[in-house]
Design a protein around this nucleic acid. Structure first.
Lengths: 197, 197
DNA sequence: ACCTGAACACCGTTCAAGT
DNA sequence: ACCTGAACACCGTTCAAGT
């Protein structure tokens, strides 16, 4: 056990989040618990409650880090294509790849559900907004009104996410040898053809 | 407590599933437990394990019932339009409405996740297939090769689901006054315009 | 044969008591 | 002041023992 004063509040917080990330990576959301996180950083469970509101709060903080990582991952792979279709395909395939490679922490993004009626905190929504911003940037060359671009971004991104999650969670009742990339391509090509018509 | 022989295995099973459905409806997936289900039917926890493999099995059985209900709900609302676009809009809006009205049991459909590497059981996949069949039927008047229809159904349905779930779970970073119906309309209109071009 | 109920190994959360 | 550790009210799952 750590001694009193070994670590500041902020240090404990950071250590706990690091430990939580490592735990999720190997055990997934199901194998995740306050007691395991605490013992990984050599503190007692009680200590976690000095630093986080509760377990949901801890999960939300980890998810915040995941959104940042996802933003960086997508930014690094978006390419420089002027062509909106190529840019969207690059983003979507990067999203699919991230979900596959970091599957447990990506899943946790959706396992956490806000208390009924509560909104997600403002800092979390801002992180979400950054991700949607990448999609908007890809669509912007279509040069419509900004609101139309924002709406299309959300529709397309939600759709890409839907394809991704139904595949990973095996809810697709698969037909042919269809992979997520192929489905996303079909989505984007047809949507954009319609959108630009 | 029930006495020995009061109920057959099948009766206990049915009672447990009924009780589980009622419990999910009021408490949601989080407030759901084997002990609560057992006590609702006046049996001991142990008894549940004579009738179900484990709690995941029970959840999967409830989800099977939900898929049947969803199929009936969608069938009753699909309309008789020849027009694929109208038919798809009717189905999608019915899906959105179901998710809103039966929110906890609809959510549970996706809270359950198969053990890593395991497929969903064949009977469950068949129920899933029935739902996708409705979407295929709506697209069929486009009279392409059957495989193309099946692929488009999956792409569109996954997309509709994505819009639905990101809205309900508040992952949309909302812009304007956008409702799920409006987004789904944007999706379907543009996709079909592209698909038919 | 059928079901119980106690046991095991866990949970999240709180908070009086120690250092 | 900071952290502990025991307590509370729960979990899922198993299985010897009772009727």
């Amino acid at each position: 056990m750590a001694r009193r004063g070994d670590h500041s509040r902020e240090e404990i917080r950071r250590m706990a989040l690091d430990a939580a990330e490592a735990l999720v990576a190997v055990e997934g959301y199901k194998g995740f618990s306050a007691r395991k996180v605490a013992s990984a950083i050599h503190y007692t469970v009680g200590t976690l409650y000095l630093v986080f509101e509760n377990l949901d709060d801890l999960v939300l903080q980890v998810n915040g880090r995941t959104l940042d990582k996802l933003f960086d991952w997508l930014s690094a792979r978006r390419g420089e294509a002027e062509d909106p279709e190529a840019a969207l395909l690059a983003l979507s395939n990067a999203y699919i790849a991230y979900a596959a490679i970091e599957s447990p922490r990506w899943s946790m993004l959706f396992d956490y559900t806000a208390e009924k009626g509560d909104d997600l905190p403002e800092w979390y929504q801002r992180k979400l907004g950054r991700v949607f911003g990448l999609v908007e940037a890809a669509l912007r060359p279509l040069a419509r009104e900004e609101l139309e671009i924002q709406r299309a971004s959300r529709v397309l991104w939600a759709s890409v996410h839907g394809i991704c999650i139904l595949r990973i969670r095996q809810r697709m009742n698969p037909v042919g040898n269809q992979d997520a990339e192929g489905m996303v391509r079909m989505l984007i090509e047809n949507f954009l053809r319609g959108f630009c018509a």
